[in-house]
């Protein structure tokens, strides 16, 4: 393979890896924002919190794998508490999305300050687990194993989520509850618990993404800000409530980022947002939107 081809292949895989990381963050937001219709500004903060929890669990146990298990569960629990004791009350206020937006914005600000009090203001570092360190040869291209792991992890999460949502009775209830909560409630299903669990699941996915991203990024209080914004773009472009749409949008935006930097680096930071504007102009529900 020529060096030039290798470079393009590398950019393609970078786009895939970053796209899958974006999907991991955005899939949780697809559940919460896209399907449940809750405008959760705190999603990026959950991502950031999970990275911090990863630092702590790693420090205590020395095991990245345990942190991948425990940190997202901690974030999921927090998500459940936020839904149960805050969001539900905000929704009952009748102020609609404004109340959700303000509340989750408040939660994100509190979390940002809480991590500073708990972990300090310095950037913290997580190393790639030794089993995933190093490079692998792909058709002559040396590529970091850990970035391939992010792709695989995202695919596993996607498969599990799809399985639960589309192939189980629980998934049917969830989809029915977010579509018509009144009808599902009349059938004897406690939709409030369903919503609480779905919110927790969405938060868990932000948590998994936070732990996955920690070894390649510095863990600092602003970690979730930009990725939270990018995740919103993925959900909007992919279409509200569409997991498949989020996957395609994340992959496309990941490639747009990588090849944008390769060919038009000065414009690459705005490509993602320009594409979102185009999609919204021509198809306001997103590429694969199922609901407005």
């Amino acid at each position: 393979m020529s060096p030039e081809t290798q470079m393009y292949l590398a950019q393609g895989i970078h786009g895939l890896a970053y796209g899958m990381l974006l999907f991991l963050v955005a899939s949780g937001l697809t559940l919460i924002f896209g399907m449940m219709g809750i405008l959760n500004i705190a999603h990026g903060a959950f991502f950031m919190l999970s990275a911090y929890l990863c630092v702590t669990v790693l420090g205590a146990t020395g095991s990245y794998w345990l942190s991948l298990l425990i940190a997202p569960l901690g974030v999921a629990l927090l998500g459940i508490l936020v839904e149960r004791f805050m969001l539900r009350r905000a929704q009952a206020s009748g102020m609609g999305h404004i109340a959700e937006l303000l509340l989750t914005l408040g939660v994100s600000l509190v979390l940002a300050e809480a991590v500073k009090l708990t972990w300090g203001t310095e950037g913290l570092q997580v190393n790639v687990p030794s089993a995933l360190a190093g490079l692998v040869n792909i058709a002559g291209l040396e590529y970091p194993i850990y970035r391939l792991f992010i792709i695989v992890l995202s695919l596993v999460v996607l498969a599990l989520l799809s399985l639960v949502l589309f192939k189980t009775r629980l998934g049917t209830i969830v989809r029915a509850a977010v579509s018509d909560p009144g009808m599902v409630s009349a059938l004897g299903v406690n939709t409030q618990i369903v919503f609480m669990l779905v919110f927790g699941l969405g938060s868990w996915m932000a948590g998994v993404a936070g732990v996955a991203a920690a070894p390649i990024l510095t863990v600092f209080p602003g970690l979730g800000d930009q990725i939270g914004m990018d995740a919103f773009v993925v959900v909007v472009v992919g279409g509200f409530g569409s997991l498949f749409g989020a996957l395609l949008a994340a992959l496309f935006l990941g490639e747009l980022n990588a090849f944008g930097i390769q060919f038009i680096p000065k414009l690459s930071p705005v490509l993602m947002f320009s594409f979102m504007a185009l999609v919204l102009a021509f198809k306001p529900t997103g590429l694969f939107g199922e609901r407005e």
Binding site: M7, G15, Y18, A213
Partner: peptide
């Protein structure tokens, strides 16, 4: 961009 997340595309260049 400030607070850039993925440096891989730049590093490949």
């Amino acid at each position: 961009p400030l607070f850039n997340k993925d440096f891989a595309p730049y590093l490949t260049k």
